[in-house]
Structures are given as C-alpha cells and as structure tokens.
Simulated assay, not measured.
Amino acid sequence: MTYIDRLSPWCLVRLQANMQHEIVARFRRRNDAEAHLQVMQRLSADGKYTIIFNPVIEEQISDRKG
C-alpha cells in the first residue's frame, strides 16, 4: 500500500458477482466518499457501490518491512 493510500482510508467499492469487489476510489474524508457514491449511483443505475473504511494497521506495515 502506498503512502497516499494510507492517507485515504475511506474507499468507494464497486460490488461484483461472486462476492468480488473493486476499489473505485479512495478518500480522506467519509463525506467526500458519500458525495462520490451519490454521483456514481446516478451515473450507473445498475452498478452496486458501497463505502468501506480500510485503515492500515501498523503491524501490516512492519510485517512488510522485514
């Protein structure tokens, strides 16, 4: 996970078949994610989107370092 991703824990996620998901965008604030969610729902009525909080835990970072 890049530094910019760690600064943006709120994720707009597109739900797909078979319990798959795709992160569409990341945001620093929940209200920004909610505003973008409303736009995406208007633009693609058949798409299913949700917002999740995806924080970075320090243990995960230290595990990657070594």
Rank of each mutant, 00 (worst) to 15 (best):
M1F: 10
M1L: 11
T2D: 11
T2G: 10
T2P: 00
T2S: 07
T2V: 09
Y3P: 04
Y3A: 11
I4D: 10
I4V: 14
D5V: 04
D5G: 05
R6E: 10
R6I: 05
R6P: 01
R6V: 07
L7A: 06
L7Q: 07
L7T: 05
S8A: 07
P9N: 11
P9L: 12
P9I: 06
P9M: 03
P9Q: 12
P9T: 02
P9K: 09
W10H: 14
C11F: 01
L12K: 02
L12V: 05
L12R: 02
L12Y: 04
L12S: 02
L12W: 02
V13Y: 02
R14Y: 03
L15F: 14
A17T: 03
A17V: 07
A17Q: 13
N18S: 09
N18M: 09
Q20W: 01
Q20S: 08
Q20V: 03
Q20A: 10
H21K: 14
H21M: 12
H21S: 14
I23S: 05
I23D: 15
I23W: 04
V24I: 14
V24D: 04
V24E: 10
V24K: 08
R26G: 02
F27T: 01
R28D: 06
R28M: 10
R28E: 06
R28V: 06
R29M: 04
R29C: 13
R30E: 05
R30P: 00
N31P: 09
N31I: 07
N31M: 11
N31W: 13
N31L: 10
A33P: 00
A33R: 00
A33K: 00
E34I: 05
A35L: 15
A35T: 09
A35V: 06
H36S: 06
L37R: 09
L37F: 04
L37E: 00
L37N: 00
Q38P: 00
V39T: 06
V39N: 03
M40E: 12
Q41R: 14
Q41M: 06
Q41W: 08
L43H: 07
L43Q: 13
L43I: 02
S44G: 01
S44H: 05
A45K: 12
A45Q: 09
D46H: 11
G47Y: 05
G47L: 05
G47M: 13
K48N: 11
Y49E: 02
Y49V: 02
Y49S: 11
Y49T: 06
T50E: 04
T50G: 09
T50C: 06
T50L: 15
I51G: 06
I51E: 00
I52S: 06
I52C: 10
I52G: 02
I52L: 08
I52N: 13
F53Y: 06
N54M: 11
V56T: 09
I57A: 12
I57H: 15
I57D: 14
I57W: 15
I57F: 15
I57N: 13
E58R: 15
E58Y: 14
E58V: 08
E59W: 10
E59R: 12
E59V: 05
E59Y: 14
E59P: 01
Q60K: 12
Q60N: 14
Q60H: 06
I61S: 03
S62E: 13
S62G: 05
D63I: 08
D63N: 07
R64N: 04
R64G: 02
R64P: 00
K65I: 09
G66D: 02
G66Q: 07
G66A: 06
G66I: 11
